[in-house]
Structures are given as C-alpha cells and as structure tokens.
Amino acid sequence: MAKKIDGYIKLQVPAGAANPSPPIGPALGQRGVNIMEFCKAFNAKTQEMEKGMPIPTTITVFSDKSFTFEIATPPASFYLKKAAKIQKGSTAPGTSVAGSVSMAQCREIAEAKFKDLNANDLDQATKIIAGSARSMGLEVTE
C-alpha cells in the first residue's frame, strides 16, 4: 500500500550547502522532518552544481515523517541578477532602473530554465524571462 502524503514543504536551499540553520531548520523542524537526513541527501544530490546556488525544492512529507524531494532550476531572478551583475533588483521597478540585461542573456537564461517554464518554445520562454527582468527593474536591451 502506498504511504499517505501528509503535506508539502517548499523552500529554496543552497546547492551543496544545506545545513540545519534557518530557513531549513524551522521549515522542516516544525513538521517533524529529519533535518539532518534531508541536508545530507540534498547535498549529495546537488554537489555537482555551483555551490550555494539557490535551488527551489519541494519536499513531500509522508504520514510516518519520511520524505522525498524534488529540485527545480534556480529562480529567474538569480540568473538575472548574475547576468546584470547586481546584488538585488530595483525597489521601485518601473521608476528606477537597477541594471540591464540583453535579450541574448535572457535567451541563455530561458535555455537553462526551459524545463521549469510554462512555455512551448524558446522564443516564448525568452519573453517570460525578459518580463521577469523588467519586473525586477532591469532594462532589457536588444
């Protein structure tokens, strides 16, 4: 018989560097998930990635407190900040510009994130990334 799913936890975890400090500890601990077991399994799975890269992670928790987890590509904002060489987006998008990215960079990001984007082709995915860039206060250049 399949185990009963109790719920889901979603958070961003640094690749290869999960540890029990916040936010992982509070997010998993409040639900009785074995924090150290998650950290070891997550670090084993992500150790080939760029260390510290934020990885959106969905943990499925079963009724016996055992768990599985799935990882996705880093958020578009992570790639965009890296491409624009900035620490954070604009606090007032639309009014102030935090930096700029080119459409070619948006396309590269779209390629990296394609499997997690709700897009039929790369052109559509690139437009989604360009939209994310603008909403962060980045100028998108041709």
């Binding site: 799913i5 109790d6 719920g7 889901y8 936890i9 979603k10 958070l11 961003q12 916040p22 936010p23 509070p26 997010a27 409040q30 639900r31 928790v61």
Partner: peptide, 18 residues
C-alpha cells in the same frame, strides 16, 4: 518569504508561510 508548507490536518488543510 523563506518557505511555505501545506499539510492535510484531517477535515481541513493548513497553509503556513514563513
């Protein structure tokens, strides 16, 4: 917002945003 969790609690479900 650092995480969210959605859990079934019998008759009702609970969503926590941290």
């Amino acid at each position: 917002m650092t995480s969210w969790s959605l859990f079934d609690e019998g008759d009702i479900a609970r969503l926590d945003l941290i």
